[in-house]
Design a protein around this nucleic acid. Structure first.
Length: 577
DNA sequence: GCCGTTTTCGGCCCGACTGTTTTCAGTCG
């Protein structure tokens, strides 16, 4: 994330999490450990910089932060770390934290390995395992040793989380493999995909069935693309695919599908908060339902709505279940009515054969109309992007005419003339001003000179916004999902300028980007900047990336009135510049 | 270490699977 406040909060969260992990290895009181975990999670999920809270002297108002951890946080601000962590690291070893990244390795095992074999890091673990020293320890065996070696090898070649769009494709293919079976009554993709998280750690599938689960589990493990079976039981089976992604399959009875779906959708943080709250009310929540203390029969389990309702809460959409403030909002009936695909009336960012797209103006329009849209904006590239066959002013002038003509040929649909104009190194725009004024919508994007330093990039964007010619900033961070991190600039300053100059910011839904992401979009929204969603389609098929943009908007808590695509074509154009 | 509609003590989310045991601790999500 290029989001500064999140990076800062994440740093604080990490230090506290380190303390929790080191305490675990040391074998400290488990509730003290949990206190540090809770505080770490709370700081990581704050909606404002923790340093602002510190400045107001209100740290202990944060749920999970008491006097002791508040003083740790003050110390981190001053010194970059805290005494608790320093002392633990003196006593233990920093490499032990890495050991915990190994699947199947928890604090107890780390402690045993450290005490018995003086293993302090992954390299030493690898050597001990290769020399078959691990299997001699009490509580360890040959299998554990072999698992460690395999896991170390995997960690060494691992490239992290999977972007949502590719994870979704894989999840859907596995879902579809099982969906047609007679013994599968229902199957849903749960987990972070359902929450529309921009990157995915693993995939969760949930099946409702009344039959013997074994054949379903067998079929699951035999799907083409499974490279390894990690866990296999009657209720839960986990595999790893050739892409290195873990897929978990859970099977439950149909009458508990709602509570199970809620459970497997997560997030963990959401559940911890919800369950703690339920417990105080004398109730228990599990994947099998909501239970009143002592009663083996659930008061709710059939649907997710039932589960929330039994807890006295409004339905919380999956995208908001991150353990931030959604439970309080649901309690007060104050949840945002999230924007949905059904609210989206048009798409503001796409390309045709005029630059680097694969379809004509009319083909794009007809495809968009078939998707139920009322309008599109065609935004081909400007000339500096020669690799993308960018338009010269002359070509753009003709293109505008062609768009106006095409617009006459299609009924009950509006094709707006636009451009994705490059924001040049100094912030000037790569097109004649007159033509930019003539067209309906201007996406301003950075494609070249991405390596400017922070000050220069900030000035560049401010200059571009200052022209008054841009309708929205396209893919505003420039990051490639799972690839390059995006250019550096002062986001707060740029957002403020966008608000002042009535420039919207795009959530670009194209599968490689998701840019802005939900965090950025939420931040823009707080500043009061309007959000607009674009598919950045380069073909008719590319138009189908819009749901990813909607997903990020939903995670950001945006309602239809916050998203310009929910306006008519006329209102859209009038709402900016 | 944190918290309070049982508030200054006595609790702290829940269940599945594995490997190592021979009834369960550890780990994971």
């Amino acid at each position: 994330m290029t989001d500064e406040e999140q990076v800062d909060n994440k740093y604080y969260a990490q230090i506290l999490s380190d303390v929790a992990l080191l305490l675990q290895i040391k074998g400290a009181n488990r509730y003290k450990i949990r206190a540090y975990q809770n505080a770490s999670r709370a700081i990581g999920g704050l909606n404002e910089p923790v340093e602002d809270v510190l400045a107001r002297d209100e740290l202990t108002d944060i749920d999970g932060v008491g006097k002791s951890i508040a003083s740790d946080i003050a110390e981190i601000k001053k010194t970059g770390t805290c005494q608790a962590r320093t002392d633990l690291l003196d006593e233990l070893d920093p490499g032990l934290l890495d050991l915990l990244k190994i699947q199947g390795m928890g604090a107890k095992k780390v402690k045993t390995l450290y005490d018995e074999l003086d293993i302090k890091n992954i390299q030493e673990l690898k050597e001990a395992a290769e020399n078959q020293k691990i299997r001699e320890l009490d509580g360890f065996g040959k299998k554990t040793e072999e698992k460690f070696l395999a896991e170390i090898e995997r960690l060494e070649s691992d490239d992290g989380r999977t972007p949502l769009p590719s994870a979704l494709v894989l999840a859907e293919s596995f879902r579809d493999e099982l969906a047609d079976r007679d013994d599968v009554e229902r199957i849903e993709i749960a987990g972070s995909i359902r929450r529309q998280k921009e990157t995915i750690g693993d995939i969760d599938l949930l099946v409702a069935s009344t039959s013997d689960p074994t054949p379903i589990m067998d079929a699951f493990t035999k799907i083409a693309g499974v490279s390894e079976i990690l866990v296999k039981g009657e209720k839960k089976t986990s595999v790893r695919t050739v892409q290195g992604i873990q897929i978990d399959l859970r099977i439950v009875a149909p009458e508990v599908f709602g509570s199970a779906l809620h459970y497997f959708t997560g997030s963990k943080e959401h559940h911890v908060k919800l369950r703690t709250r339920a417990k105080r009310q004398g109730m228990k929540i599990s994947e099998y339902g909501v239970f009143k203390d002592g009663d083996p029969n659930p008061v709710a389990s059939m649907t997710e709505e039932d589960v929330f309702s039994a807890l006295g809460l409004k339905y919380i959409p999956p995208e908001l279940r991150e353990g931030f403030d959604e439970i309080d909002l649901a309690l007060e009936d104050d949840l945002p009515e999230l924007v949905d695909m059904k609210h989206i009336r048009g798409d503001i960012h796409m390309h045709t054969i005029e630059s680097d797209g694969e379809a004509t103006i009319l083909e794009m329009a007809q495809a968009a109309k078939a998707l139920g849209y009322e309008y599109i904006v065609l935004t081909d590239h400007s000339q500096v992007l020669t690799v993308a066959n960018g338009m010269t002013p002359k070509r753009f002038a003709r293109h505008i005419e062609a768009i106006r003509e095409a617009n006459e040929q299609i009924e009950d649909f509006t094709i707006l003339a636009g451009i994705e104009v490059d924001i040049l190194k100094d912030g000037s725009l790569d097109m004649d001003e007159e033509l930019l004024r003539e067209c309906d919508w201007v996406v301003g994007s950075v494609h070249i000179h991405q390596q400017l330093d922070k000050d220069a990039m900030t000035r560049r964007l401010l200059n571009a916004i200052d022209t008054g010619l841009i309708s929205c900033l396209g893919h505003p961070t420039g990051r490639i999902l799972g690839g390059r991190p995006g250019y550096e600039y002062d986001l707060e300053e740029v957002l403020q300028a966008c608000k002042d100059k009535r420039v919207a910011v795009e959530i670009n839904g194209s599968t490689g980007r998701l840019d802005f992401n939900a965090d950025h979009a939420a931040r823009a929204h707080r500043v009061g900047v309007k959000i607009v969603l674009g598919s950045d389609a380069h073909s008719t098929l590319g138009l189908e990336a819009m749901p990813f943009a909607v997903g990020q908007a939903r995670r950001a808590g945006l309602t239809p009135k916050d998203v310009l695509n929910c306006l008519s074509a006329k209102e859209l154009v009038a709402s900016v510049r």
